[in-house]
């Protein structure tokens, strides 16, 4: 199998309001080389509503490239007081 056609399996976890009308957790397959920003786009998540991203429990920026078997957790911004 060539690298370009390889798929990666990601465990995607949505937190707080991101899961409303979506899902809490799901296994997803993406093309190899997909970034966190790519997942946000593919899943149709509102860009402004995802501000904290963790891969395997560690904070990452949205250009982080995912690897097969990663767990990706996405959080929305809370700003109320």
């Amino acid at each position: 199998m060539s690298v370009s056609s390889a798929k990666i399996k990601i465990f995607l976890k949505l937190f707080a309001s991101l899961r409303l009308d979506r899902f809490d957790t799901a296994y997803r397959e993406y093309d190899s080389g997909t970034s966190v920003a790519g997942v946000i786009r593919i899943e149709g998540l509102p860009e402004k509503e995802v501000t904290l991203m963790l891969v395997n429990g560690r904070h990452v920026e949205c250009d982080h490239t995912l690897a097969d078997g990663d767990t990706l957790a996405l959080f929305p911004p809370l700003g109320g007081g």
């Binding site: 501000t51 904290l52 991203m53 904070h59 920026e61 949205c62 911004p77 809370l78 700003g79």
Partner: peptide
């Protein structure tokens, strides 16, 4: 925590 935020407020 707010690395990608834009705008004044969040989901509240």
């Amino acid at each position: 925590i707010y690395s990608r935020y834009s705008g004044e407020r969040g989901i509240e």
